[in-house]
């Protein structure tokens, strides 16, 4: 009777190995999430400090001469993205690499800056910053802030495309394109992309140097 109550060595070893492996996996993923959150907070502080500096400079000189807090180096804060309807308020960083997207939504290098003529592409992870992007509906308002330039956008299209399908197109007028993976609730690398396009409520203000 005593021996039947004891755990078998096989179950003990396998159970221990599974728990250890699981802890490693969860620790790895958790470290990535925590690292991203910490860096996102640092990036927000950088952004706010840059905004203050820009405001002081504007008060002194009358013009804004810089927008991005850290230039356009990957990972530096570039703009602020707000979508009130889904409660999104994130600092957009330059670059769409793995490191940058872990910090926040990333601005695709080579695309227009938010509010400037052309297509401005901002991408984010569906499990973090763009978690609620799927709830965005046509007609919703998106706000981007970049230095003194504050642009209000209206969502005009919402498409789901395959990962390899053409999704980004050059435009003459100001366009904001937000992309993330689709489906939002999906375990593993999601096969599709959600592409949300918005147009500005007003034409971009001229004379403000990015």
């Amino acid at each position: 009777m005593e021996s039947s109550r004891r755990r078998s060595p096989w179950a003990r070893r396998t159970g221990g190995a599974l728990v250890a492996t699981g802890l490693l996996l969860v620790t790895f993923a958790g470290t990535r999430y925590v690292e991203g959150a910490v860096r996102a907070e640092a990036v927000r502080e950088q952004w706010e400090a840059a905004q203050v500096r820009a405001a002081v400079e504007a008060t002194r000189n009358g013009v804004f001469t810089s927008v991005a807090a850290g230039g356009f180096t990957p990972g530096s804060p570039l703009a602020r993205l707000r979508i009130p309807s889904i409660g999104l308020d994130e600092i957009v960083v330059a670059g769409v690499g793995d490191v940058e997207l872990n910090v926040g939504p990333g601005h695709l290098p080579g695309s227009a800056l938010p509010g400037q003529p052309g297509n401005s592409v901002i991408s984010g992870h569906r499990d973090r910053h763009f978690l609620r992007l799927g709830g965005l509906a046509l007609g919703d308002t998106v706000v981007t802030e970049m230095g003194p330039r504050r642009t209000q956008w209206i969502v005009v299209s919402r498409r789901v495309l395959g990962a390899g399908e053409p999704a980004l197109f050059a435009t003459v007028d100001a366009t904001l394109t937000l992309t993330t993976c689709w489906p939002i609730r999906f375990f593993g690398p999601a096969p599709d992309r959600l592409v949300v396009t918005a147009k500005p409520l007003e034409p971009p203000a001229a004379g403000v140097q990015g």
Binding site: L18, V19, T21, G22, L23, L24, L25, V26, T27, F28, A29, G30, R32, Y33, G95, V96, G97, L101, G106, L108, P109, G110, S111, N119, V121, S123, G124, H125, R126, D127, F130, L161, A163, G164, E165, P166, A167, L168, F169, A170, T179, T180, C181, F186, F187, G188, P189, A190, R193, V195
Partner: peptide, 26 residues
């Protein structure tokens, strides 16, 4: 990483949710 006309959306796929699920299951 540069924007080209007709290019696909940036790769935002992340395996972290799957890793968390596998870890929790294990």
């Amino acid at each position: 990483g540069y924007f080209a006309d007709g290019s696909p959306a940036p790769n935002t796929a992340t395996p972290l949710p799957l890793i968390v699920l596998l870890g929790a299951s294990a």
